[in-house]
Simulated scan of single mutants.
Amino acid sequence: MVAKVPESHAKKAKRDEALAEALTVSLKEKKAKKKATRKEIKARGLKYAEEYAAAKQAVIDSTKKARSEGNIFVPEGPKLVFAVRIRGINGVAPKERKILQLLRLRQIHNGVFIKLNYATLRMLQRVEHYIAYGYPSLKLVKSLIYKRGFGKVGKPGAWSRIPLSDNQVVEANLGKFDILCMEDLVHEIYTVGPHFKEAANFIWPMKLSSPKGGFSKFSKLKHFTEGGDAGNREHYIAGLVGRMV
Rank of each mutant, 00 (worst) to 15 (best):
Q168L: 14
Q168G: 09
V169G: 08
V170H: 01
E171G: 09
E171R: 15
E171T: 14
E171S: 14
E171M: 14
A172L: 11
A172T: 08
A172K: 07
N173T: 04
L174V: 03
G175D: 12
K176T: 11
K176F: 12
F177A: 09
F177E: 07
D178K: 13
I179K: 01
I179M: 01
L180Y: 10
L180H: 06
C181D: 06
C181P: 09
M182I: 06
M182E: 05
E183P: 08
V186G: 02
V186A: 10
V186Q: 05
V186H: 06
H187F: 06
E188R: 10
E188C: 09
E188P: 03
I189T: 02
I189H: 01
I189K: 00
Y190V: 09
Y190N: 09
Y190L: 11
Y190M: 09
Y190E: 09
T191W: 05
T191R: 10
T191E: 09
V192I: 04
V192M: 01
V192W: 00
G193W: 15
G193I: 15
P194Q: 13
H195K: 13
F196K: 10
F196P: 08
K197I: 15
K197A: 11
E198A: 09
E198P: 05
E198V: 12
A199T: 03
A199Q: 08
N201P: 02
F202V: 01
F202M: 00
F202N: 01
